[in-house]
Nucleic acid binder design. Sequence first.
DNA 1: ATTAAATAAATGTTAAAAAAATAAATTTGA
DNA 2: TCAAATTTATTTTTTTAACATTTATTTAAT
Lengths: 149, 149
Amino acid sequence: MKTEELLKTDHLIDTKKLVINIMLCAGKATTMMNEALKPYEISMQQFNVLRILRGQKGKPANLSTIQDRMVNKMSNTTRLVDKLIKKNLVDRCICEENRRKVEIVITGEGLNLLKTLDPIVDQLEENFSQHINKKELIQLNETLEKLRN
Amino acid sequence: MKTEELLKTDHLIDTKKLVINIMLCAGKATTMMNEALKPYEISMQQFNVLRILRGQKGKPANLSTIQDRMVNKMSNTTRLVDKLIKKNLVDRCICEENRRKVEIVITGEGLNLLKTLDPIVDQLEENFSQHINKKELIQLNETLEKLRN
DNA sequence: ATTAAATAAATGTTAAAAAAATAAATTTGA
DNA sequence: TCAAATTTATTTTTTTAACATTTATTTAAT
């Protein structure tokens, strides 16, 4: 094999490793998250929707806004919100300015649940990155952000 | 707030960012992968099982081996293998030494499919990391491996 | 004003995944 | 040896996701 080809092969191995590493890390984070949330009978996705709504600071969000901000864009956000409504964690009403749209807000109960979950999730996130130091953490975020482009 | 607390808050923000970045990157890779595999009517998970089996180099693998090596450990590997059998990509028979176990091997057809898919996936993986340079790639892999512990 | 096109969300259907329960074969240990 | 425990895989049930279709509303064009 020519040197050039060797370099190419070598690079390919590293990119393959990268994809696997990313997947494994994401899998680990997801598992940790779901296990932590399980006692509260809430899925990671539901939790994320609640956080998005809290981020609105009282301002209602419509379905497409939520969908845009979700990590795993899935088609049936309607039903995800349905479940949160059933648990009394969010409210929904039709938007009066544009009656096609729907306005979703987090309830007091939803905010309380988040308040309970916050320290648990914070701790979990700290644990997740416990094996790397501050410098590596910052560097890692920078590089990962480049990958997202 | 005391300096110590500020530092803690600051660190927390970075760890939160990390979890989100990992999720988004994994989501991107998954989407790219599934789209590339779609024309071949094979899911990413099925593809990974095939690669695990090829890695066995003829030696049969049993279900728990496959499960251990899978990125997204899911409980119904049986079903996943069923689908591959239906497509004639793998074979399964019960292990004679220990009749609880099952022996799974990739078929010639399965190997051929992988041969077709290999360059497509290679290209995709290269594309995935196109925005970072070699040094960043290597550094990234090293740090991600620490996270997996 | 009326119709067509576009937008936003909901619904129905089908497929896939996760979780839990069950079944079969093997080990262990009295 | 034989019941209890363990391992390995399957089956069943429940949840979740993906895809296509439908409904309601608004915007734009004639």
